[in-house]
Design a protein around this nucleic acid. Sequence first.
DNA 1: GTCTATAAATAGATAGAC
DNA 2: GTCTATCTATTTATAGAC
Lengths: 193, 193
Amino acid sequence: MRVAAQAEFAKRGFAGASVDKIAAAAHVNKAMIYYHFSSKAALYREILRDMFQAVGRRARAVAESNEPPADKIGLFIEAIAAEADARPHFPPIWLREVAEGGTHLDATVLRDITGVVQSLAAIIDEGVRRGRFTRVNPVLIHVSIVAPLMIHFGSRGLRERLERHGLRGAGTTPPALIEHLRRVALGLLEGRT
Amino acid sequence: MRVAAQAEFAKRGFAGASVDKIAAAAHVNKAMIYYHFSSKAALYREILRDMFQAVGRRARAVAESNEPPADKIGLFIEAIAAEADARPHFPPIWLREVAEGGTHLDATVLRDITGVVQSLAAIIDEGVRRGRFTRVNPVLIHVSIVAPLMIHFGSRGLRERLERHGLRGAGTTPPALIEHLRRVALGLLEGRT
DNA sequence: GTCTATAAATAGATAGAC
DNA sequence: GTCTATCTATTTATAGAC
C-alpha cells in the first residue's frame, strides 16, 4: 500500500496521483486507504516523512562517525546515492517538491532537510578546524553534490527516452558519478582549484 | 495567455494545472484557449518547445562563438543561468519533466535537449584538441553544471520556506553560484584536480 | 473571435452494510 | 477491518448562439 503510493506519487506527482490507482496497484479497496489515512494529502505527508527522515539520519550518521573529514565527504555522497538507489521514488518526489516550492513539506520534513545541509556543514567545519579543508560555502558544496545525484537517479526514464531518440549513450554509471562528485567536492575543499 | 499557462504549469505541473485557472489568470474565456490550442496537452507542448528551443539556441551560439574554450565554458554556464533567470517557469518545468521521465517531450524537444549536451561536448572537444583541456566525460560536466543551476533557480520557494523555518541564511547569489560552477568545471577540465 | 451552457468523465471522500 | 454504492466537486472539452 505504501509502496504503491510511493510509486504513484513519484510517477505522477501529488496532484496527478489518483487514490483509485493507488488502491488498484496495492490490490486493496479504496475505502481501506481512507480507513488508514485521513486523506490523500495525509498519505503523501507520511511518505515524505519516511523519505526525508531516512536521508537525514544517514547524513547525520556520516557526520558523527569517526572517519577523517575527507572520507566523510565521500561517505556523505555515497549515503545520498545509496538512498536514491534503494528508494527509486525518492529522487522524483524530491525533484517535484523542489519545483513546487515545498508546498507539502511540514515542519518535521523541513527540519530533516535542514539537517542534511547542517551535517555536511559540520563535516566541512571539522575539516577546516583540522587544517585539512579551506572554507567553502557549504550550500554550494551541497548543491554541487545533491543536485547531480537527484537529477541522475531521477532521470532514468528521460535518459532512456533520449537514448531511444539517438543521443549517443555515454552511459554514466552510479560509481562513476560518485567518484566524479567526490573529486569535485574534495577538489574544492582541499583547495586544488 | 502563454505567460499565464507557463506560470500555472510551473506551479502545479501538467496534471495539476487547470485550464480554468489559466483562463482566469489570463483574463480570457476558457473556450478561447481551446480555440487557439487543440487541448491542454497541446498547449503544454508548445510551451515546452519554446522553452527548450531557446536554451538549445543559446547553448549552440556559445559553442559556435570565437572565444577560447575556457571562456566558452563560462559563457555556457552564464547562458543557462540567464535563461533560468529570465524565464522563472523554466527550471520548475524542467525539474518536473525530468521527474516524469520526459513523458510530454516530443521529438523536437528531445533534439533540443540533446543539442545542449552536444554543444557542451563540442566545447570540451575543442579544448582537448587545442591541448587546453584533459578529456572528461561531457555528461558528467553537463550534470555538474545544469543540475545545480536548475535546482537553485527552481528552488526559490523552497529556500524561502526553509529560511522561514530557521535554516540559517547562507544566501547564495546567482553570481556566486555561477563563479562556483565555473571553478568546478574548469578545475576538472584543466586538470587541476 | 468571443461567449454561455453543458456534456462526460474522473476526482477525493464518506455512509453504511457486513 | 473490508466492502459496495454513492455524493459532490472539479476536470477537460465541446456545441452552438452571437
